[in-house]
Nucleic acid binder design. Structure first.
Lengths: 338, 338
DNA sequence: TATCAACACGAAAACGGTTTCGTAACTATA
DNA sequence: TATAGTTACGAAACCGTTTTCGTGTTGATA
């Protein structure tokens, strides 16, 4: 087992000073050709690599960015993460990732942990609990210490920083409108609690599309499901109680579950009921029938978030916070008619 | 914007020395009650937190572990990651994650990057290219520097370190046997290239089950697909050319795709053809019909890997490398008869 | 009153680098 | 030959901690 070699060891071995070694390895003009050759050869031989930790301490930057997301076994978040990782890697940054598990406490803990010098900035998507409590002091504190933060997808207008979001309202509007155009009139929304900004935005787009088409807006056609529930009873009741011929779901799983329930009740998709979901994940592609859905372009979101963050890390810019809006794409597959 | 406060600043402000501050904050007996009270109060007021980087440099440990996986938008890997993250977090470790993208070069680069002091150890699953090239020098070098590595799932017997694997051969044997018991005799295997240890292990279990049942082992009933192909032509041909009444697939996607192809060809699942896949992911649960599959217990694998790694980091133990075997579970759903 | 602990604190080294500045030795100039 | 300017290197500070060791002051003891 050979430990990594340090400047000091090289210096000692070659009987020069540490500073000379450091300069020689940086090919400084200050050092003579001979000495540089000798030192560089030695360093190469022993496979010298500067210690990142020491560099971080000296330079006051870590070349790390911290990503905090609510869940990791999750198509959308991993997609975003891939975008982040790619852009960051290409800019020489590493990524530390923490999972908040939808818990406020874990989100706070993770931020505090990483904020103690481990990262140069954060990219995060708020946990469910954080959005519910509406408490963003942990984020404000980090920002206040001069550590930049970029929020994506699950954001809050109460925190001033760069953000990347989907045009949720518009794309929901477009999805619903497309179903209306194909002749549907009794349109339901299956959503989560409104403290999720994305859910409330999508709900607004949903409502606006219905009103703009001069259809009756019926509150009872909105089903609010607990975020992660394994119980399908609510869904069954909902579709038994109401006559519905089209559904917008705020995520993929809800859509798949609803399609399943409805098909078991003997209805045909899309002839009797159309479905559009959010998240163009693996489920949508392989479900029966294949689910029409809104692609959120997670990778692009991630890349954009990373770009905003690194920009701010490297050029400590002004206080003009930017919000980048990613346009969703409506993908028509077999759960809708046209 | 208030920057984080350092020991030095506290010391200056309170007109004591840095060492006194350090000791006072650790509640050292050496410091008088009065001084400690004063310093602790001040530190609390200014929300002092020790700088992780400085601590890392001093202590020669980072409390970070590096995870390198081939893909992140991937149910199994994210599941493992969740297990790692949970166990590590609970032990006070953070996780840095890099994606090799199935590329040898990226795997090497990522390891080198993190090995320069950024992490105390690695958990990794070999990229496809690495397994194909059979080149593990990057891993051996890291090990040689005294940085522990734990390999999971995609491992190689050519590298000596702790490992966590599935009992691939046995569980494949069990899966095939269960289909034989239900009366199937023409059983196919849909797999990837054999340089994946998991694929070859599963193939062995497959073959053994067939031979043990005194069925004819027919090489032509093995379909080898490129790892990530979007082209279903190979699959269609395969099922047209051969009469098959049961299929074992080495992953979820292959199974779903094959089921789809077969159903379009007018066959019924499971009456005409049974299917069993690997990876108890979201697809298996929601496919039509629901897919019988081998649960790999990714979370447990991740937790086990993290435990092995942290054990080795904290107690620089002997050279008795351990291989933990996780037992897969065969989950019978609707794509098999019984 | 000289001696010795105990107490409370500070100085300095160390972790592994980078960088500024100082300087000895040599060369070139007048 | 005295002076100035290069050249090639080393010393030291610094990043933010921890920790060992040294030391001035106090109080107790003989």
């Amino acid at each position: 087992m050979k430990k990594r070699v340090t400047l000091k060891q090289i210096a000692k071995e070659l009987e020069v000073s540490v500073s000379t070694v450091s300069k020689a390895l940086k090919n400084s003009e200050e050092i003579s050709r001979d000495t540089k050759d000798k030192i560089q050869a030695f360093a190469k031989l022993y496979n010298y690599r500067p210690n990142n930790i020491a560099l971080s301490l000296k330079n006051k930057n870590t070349k790390n960015i911290g990503v905090i997301i609510p869940d990791i076994v999750h198509h959308f978040f991993t997609t975003v993460f891939r975008g982040i990782e790619q852009y960051a890697g290409q800019k020489g940054y590493n990524v530390m990732i923490c999972v908040s598990d939808e818990s406020f406490e874990k989100e706070v803990l993770n931020m505090e942990l990483l904020a103690n010098g481990s990262v140069d900035g954060f990219i995060l998507s708020l946990s469910a609990e954080t959005q519910e409590r509406n408490d963003y002091n942990h984020i404000k504190e980090v920002l206040d210490q001069g550590i930049p933060v970029v929020l994506f997808d699950r954001v809050s207008k109460d925190v001033l920083c760069d953000k990347v979001v989907l045009n949720d309202q518009e794309i929901a509007y477009e999805a619903v409108t497309s179903m209306i155009r194909s002749g549907k009139t009794k349109i339901a929304l299956v959503t989560t609690e409104n403290y999720f900004n994305v859910s409330s935005d999508r709900a607004q787009g949903f409502e606006k599309a219905i009103r703009d088409a001069n259809l009756a807006f019926d509150e009872s056609l909105i089903l609010t499901l607990p975020y992660q529930s394994e119980d399908d009873e609510l869904i069954r009741n909902f579709f038994e109680r109401n006559t519905i011929d089209a559904v917008l779901c705020v995520n993929e799983i809800f859509a798949i579950k609803c399609m399943d329930v409805v098909q078991r009740q003997g209805k045909r998709v899309p002839e009797d009921i159309s479905f559009i979901g959010f998240t163009n994940g693996i489920l949508s592609k392989y479900s029966a029938p294949r689910l029409s859905t809104v692609a959120q372009h997670g990778e692009r979101m991630g890349e954009t978030a990373a770009k905003l963050l690194i920009d701010r890390i490297e050029n400590d810019v002004d206080d003009n916070f930017r919000t980048e809006v990613i346009s969703g794409t409506l993908i028509q597959r077999d759960s809708t008619t046209n």
